[in-house]
Design a protein around this nucleic acid. Structure first.
Lengths: 193, 193
DNA sequence: CGCGACGTTGATTTGCCTCAACGATTGTGG
DNA sequence: CCACAATCGTTGAGGCAAATCAACGTCGCG
């Protein structure tokens, strides 16, 4: 049930750079298409992340599990988003994150090795990844500030605005693990309007 | 009292790319040298950040002030670090951060406009900034996870390990504003062992 | 159909904040 | 260089937001 449709991917790229037909074909030839069932893993704690992932359909998540067995979610990646364990991806060392599918999904995989080769053959791609990394950094830093300045209630409201589509798809437990509260407390916040 | 010494800067660049003499000269010619007194601002909330900053000597910080007048510190930048309001820098819109000098400092400034021109004339520089942005992203995401998983005590211990030099320089108040506790509570944590 | 994961609710606890008071340190203007 | 103010760090009493623990109904899935 793979769409083998790269249009969303090429659209994503074209937000920041322009490729000709030849470059598009070369780029796509380097990608691996993969279907993921719900809860299927792309990466586990302790493994080396050899790939960056673009989500075509469905939704993935990156998270850790603490000493008490609780999950803490670093990122959700719905369709049209990129996701990776950046630490492991750039260092090619063992990472700390788990990445799995929140629901049945379809993804495109690009290995670090292929990415670096593409930076040489199509330098514009290095620009593309520079730009989306800058944007990810802005988002991540905003989340640090949100953690310092906002109450749990405000972080929840914020989440609903940033991910309006995910609210109905995700189990509440996972929203709690993202905004940094217990599932019980999130339930109580929602109850009091 | 400006050293006009670019060696630390060139050393910083050479960690990730190699430039020839001509390229080094071109790059340096685009920089502006600036001395900052303690508490002197480089950027204030509501301004557009036209520049990225490399710290040659001293230490800078990026922070916001919340509705109750409390500071929340997003980043410290001692010598050999880069600092900027990335949101404002890449969008050229009004930013939310303040950036000022924690102590008397010397910095090098690179404007977004000049940076983008350099990406064309010296493509290797785009690689350099891609790489340091990737590393900043890793650090920022780790801090998000620390906020989700660690107690205040653990975040303080962590801070002492990551910034051993800063502990003795910074007022405790600012360490508190970075790790996300009140100054009073940090004082109490330190008292109990 | 039955089991396990999920969401809810309540009682209790706790980590951290708020407010206030006080010495110590720093900085500053005369 | 001193006097004074301002800021900083400390300590204590009390309060609150959020966690913990436990019990229970519901639902989706095998």
């Amino acid at each position: 049930m793979i769409s083998s449709n790269f249009s969303l991917f090429l659209q994503n790229i074209s937000k920041h750079i322009t490729l000709n037909a030849e470059e598009k074909n070369l780029l796509i030839s380097q990608l691996q298409v993969k279907a993921l069932k719900k809860k299927q893993f792309l990466l586990r704690t302790g493994e080396v992340s050899k790939i960056a992932t673009f989500v075509v359909r469905g939704c993935l998540r990156a998270y850790t599990i603490d000493d008490n067995g609780f999950e803490h979610i670093l990122q959700f990646a719905p369709a049209d988003w990129w996701i990776t364990d950046m630490y492991s991806f750039i260092s090619q060392k063992e990472g700390y994150l788990n990445i799995d599918a929140v629901e049945e999904s379809e993804v495109l995989l690009l290995s670090r090795h292929q990415q670096e080769e593409l930076f040489v053959t199509i330098p514009k791609l290095e620009r593309f990844f520079r730009i989306i990394t800058e944007k990810s950094l802005v988002a991540s830093r905003q989340r640090v500030l949100d953690g310092l300045t906002l109450t749990a209630q405000q972080r929840y409201t914020n989440f609903c605005q940033v991910y309006p589509t995910l609210i109905h798809t995700l189990p509440q437990k996972q929203i709690a693990a993202y905004i940094g509260v217990t599932p019980e407390f999130l339930s109580k916040m929602r109850a009091t309007r």
